[in-house]
Amino acid sequence: MAPRTPRTRRFRQLAALPAVALLGTLSGTLALSGCSDPGAAAAGAQPATTAARNGVVYNTSPDQQRLRADKDPALAAKVPELINKDGKLTVATTAGSIPLSFHASDDKTPIGVELDIAQLVADKLGLELDVQVTSWENWPLKTQSGDFEAVFSNVGINAARVKLFDFSSYRAAYMGFEAKKGSSYDIKGSDDISGLKISVGSGTNQEKILIAWNKELEAKGKAPAVLQYYSSDADTILALSSGRTDLNIAPFPSVTYRENTREDLLVVGKVNAGWPSETLVAATTLKGNGLAPAITDALNSAIQDGSYGKVLERWGLSEEALPESKTVNEANFGTGK
């Protein structure tokens, strides 16, 4: 999908921000808070359906027949005029991690649980869903510029991000460690990764966790883990399955998907994506533009009518369901409200 022309009618106040300061802030944000696996989807055609050992039959074809919702006039009325004017909800996603957001078997159509949830939100707000695939590194600046109105791509909430964005929570946020089948690893903390070779996405939250764990190991006089970086999911998993790495850390839904659809990998650990604190996955919108509360209300409507639960069940992610969506911003971050 071709990038859209930036909407100059939106958020002109960004022009007042010094470019160097803005880029520096965003660079720190990415280093602190990535929760997505930014590698590209595995190359090559994929089967249209995949039957998994967890009982889920994953539809990976471009014909998704997504669960749809009716427009709720009361919710639609809450959409800010600048967002509502063109009748679209422009959503960014990275399309790099099954079953979250990835390319279908045609190798070009973005699909996954993130986009199914975005579809429910757009429907309830009376907007057409306009999906834009972007890289993990680019979505912050493009959301700031107004190219994207919301990001649905396994984004976690944290202290760095709330300075720039508002959030509407919709899923639990965990990272998983995976290894070759037959491995005896049991990863619960820093001591368990000493000396191991671990693949990780650059600039992600999982990298932040491993760096912190390595500091703990070095303080104890133990060998740190060796972090290894690959350009795609395909290269990462090939390195793991061939024994060039001992572990891979990635979003928990992705590692459990592979455990359930492959014969050679298994999950050997789980950690909250906000370690040492906790965090949630959330729709991400520009700070202060008024869209987050409308998305939160749409998510809660989907939770209440059961469509949200059906979407998570479709992708084998029912365990990550939240009982309620909340708007999180800089003012209430960390307060539990």
Rank of each mutant, 00 (worst) to 15 (best):
M1C: 06
R4A: 09
R4W: 09
T8M: 11
R10E: 12
F11E: 00
A16W: 10
L17M: 11
G24D: 15
L30M: 14
L32E: 07
C35N: 12
A41Y: 01
A42P: 10
A45C: 01
A51P: 00
R53K: 15
R53C: 06
V56Q: 08
D63L: 09
D63P: 06
D70T: 14
A74I: 15
L75A: 08
E81Q: 10
I83R: 02
D86E: 04
A92P: 07
A104C: 10
S105I: 09
S105M: 08
V113Q: 07
A122S: 11
D123N: 14
L129Q: 12
V133W: 14
T134A: 04
W136G: 02
N138E: 10
G146T: 11
G146D: 11
V151M: 00
N154R: 04
N158V: 06
A159E: 15
A160S: 10
A172K: 15
M175Q: 09
I187L: 03
T204Q: 09
Q206C: 02
W213G: 00
L217S: 05
E218F: 01
K222V: 04
A223Y: 01
A223P: 11
I237H: 11
T245P: 03
T245W: 05
L247R: 02
I249C: 04
V268I: 10
G274D: 07
S277A: 11
N289S: 05
P293Q: 05
A294I: 06
L299C: 07
L299W: 02
L299V: 13
A302E: 05
I303H: 01
Q304S: 15
G309W: 03
E319F: 06
E320C: 03
E320V: 04
T335L: 06
